[in-house]
C-alpha cells in the first residue's frame, strides 16, 4: 500500500509532469543516474573479468619488461580518494545554502581530478611501453584509459555545475539536484578506481 505522504508526492509529480512536460523530472534524476551507473559499472565488470581471466592464464603477470610503477599511482589514488571527501564538503555547503562554499569545494575537486589525469598521463609517458606491447599492456591501457575517460567526464560535470552556479539563485539549499548528481558520479569514478588500483597495481605485487 502507498502511504499518504508518498501519494502526495506522486500526485505532485504528475502535476509537475503536466505543467513542465518539457523538462526532465528533477525528483527522479538521482534515481535515474544511480540506475545508469549500476549498468555502467557492469561494463567495467566486463573489463575486470577479462583482466582476471587473462591474468589467470598467463605464466607471468605482469611480464618482465612491462612492470608497473607504484609510487605515482599510489599518490594519484590518495588524491582521487581524498577528492571524494572534498566534493562532499561542497554538498554539505549547498545544503546550508552556501553557494560560495560549494563553488570553492567543487573547484578544488575539479582541480584534483585534473591533477589525477595529469599524473596518469605522466605515467603513460614514462612507463616505456605502449598499448600494443603485450597482453598486460593491452589490459593496463584499456582499463586505466577507460577509467580516465570517466574522470574527464566527471571534471566536465563539475565544471558544468560551476558554470551554472555563476547565476545567482540557480542552486539553493532546496534545489541542487545537479550538484548532487555530479557528486554521485564522482564517488562512482572513485570506487571504480579503487577496484582498478587493486587489480592492476596491488595484484601485481603478489
Amino acid at each position: 500500500m502507498i502511504d499518504s505522504a508518498q501519494t502526495n508526492e506522486l500526485i505532485a509529480s504528475s502535476d509537475d509532469a503536466h505543467g513542465l512536460s518539457d523538462h526532465e523530472h528533477h525528483d527522479f534524476r538521482v534515481f535515474g543516474l544511480l540506475t545508469f551507473l549500476f549498468s555502467e559499472s557492469l561494463m567495467f565488470g566486463g573489463f575486470f573479468a577479462t583482466f582476471l581471466v587473462l591474468r589467470g592464464a598467463a605464466a607471468q603477470w605482469p611480464p618482465e619488461e612491462t612492470e608497473v610503477e607504484l609510487l605515482l599511482p599510489a599518490i594519484n589514488t590518495i588524491i582521487l580518494v581524498s577528492s571524494s571527501f572534498v566534493i562532499h564538503l561542497g554538498d554539505d555547503a549547498i545544503k546550508k545554502n552556501d553557494v560560495k562554499g560549494m563553488r570553492l569545494w567543487y573547484a578544488v575537486t575539479a582541480l584534483m581530478g585534473v591533477v589525477f589525469l595529469g599524473g596518469q598521463l605522466y605515467e603513460y609517458l614514462t612507463l616505456g611501453y605502449g598499448l600494443q606491447t603485450n597482453l598486460f599492456a593491452n589490459c593496463f591501457y584499456l582499463t586505466t584509459g577507460f577509467h580516465g575517460l570517466h574522470v574527464l567526464v566527471g571534471v566536465f560535470l563539475i565544471l558544468g555545475v560551476l558554470w551554472r552556479s555563476r547565476r545567482e539563485g540557480h542552486y539553493s539549499d532546496t534545489q541542487h539536484v545537479g550538484i548532487e548528481m555530479a557528486e554521485i558520479y564522482w564517488h562512482f569514478v572513485d570506487i571504480i578506481w579503487i577496484i582498478l588500483f587493486t587489480l592492476i597495481y596491488i595484484l601485481a605485487l603478489l
Binding site: 509529480s13 504528475s14 523530472h25 525528483d27 534515481f31 535515474g32 540506475t35
Partner: peptide, 18 residues
C-alpha cells in the same frame, strides 16, 4: 537500449498514478 531501460525502470517505479 540502456538509456531506454533506465527510463522504464524509473517510470514504472515512480510514475504510476497514485
Amino acid at each position: 537500449s540502456i538509456l531506454g531501460a533506465v527510463n522504464f525502470v524509473v517510470t514504472i517505479m515512480k510514475m504510476r498514478v497514485p
